[in-house]
């Protein structure tokens, strides 16, 4: 099932990506081809299969817990050093609300 240009625009907005009009047409074709390919899964009988992400039985999975104590992995200054813009020990961002 081919997806529409409006669909491409809707997804791009969700993903915070912008595309030119030619790019959108190319993406429409490519995404439709990929979705056609993965559509073969719809025919697979999965009534008996519980998705692993929804508590399906997995013999290897165990809950790994650690003691609840605070530990320091990296000093905040080290992380702020690689940020594009900071002020007084905070990340600096453009205004959210006008």
């Amino acid at each position: 099932m081919p997806i529409s240009i409006e669909e491409v625009e809707r997804i791009a907005k969700l993903a915070r990506l912008s595309f030119g009009s030619e790019e959108k047409i190319k993406l429409q074709k490519e995404l439709s081809a990929i979705l056609d390919y993965v559509d073969q899964l719809k025919k697979v009988e999965t009534k008996s299969a519980v998705a692993l992400s929804e508590g399906g039985e997995d013999p290897d999975s165990i809950n790994l817990m650690r003691d609840d104590f605070a530990s320091s992995v990296l000093p905040p200054e080290e992380l702020l050093k690689i940020a594009p813009d900071t002020e007084s020990g905070f990340y600096k961002v453009k205004s959210v609300l006008e």
């Binding site: 969700l14 697979v44 999965t46 998705a51």
Partner: peptide
């Protein structure tokens, strides 16, 4: 983003996770 967006999640992502179990 498409396969996990509202309305498509079950048909795509959840289905794929079930097939993964098989």
């Amino acid at each position: 983003t498409y396969a996990s967006s509202a309305g498509y999640f079950d048909a795509y992502y959840k289905k794929a996770k079930q097939v993964q179990t098989l």
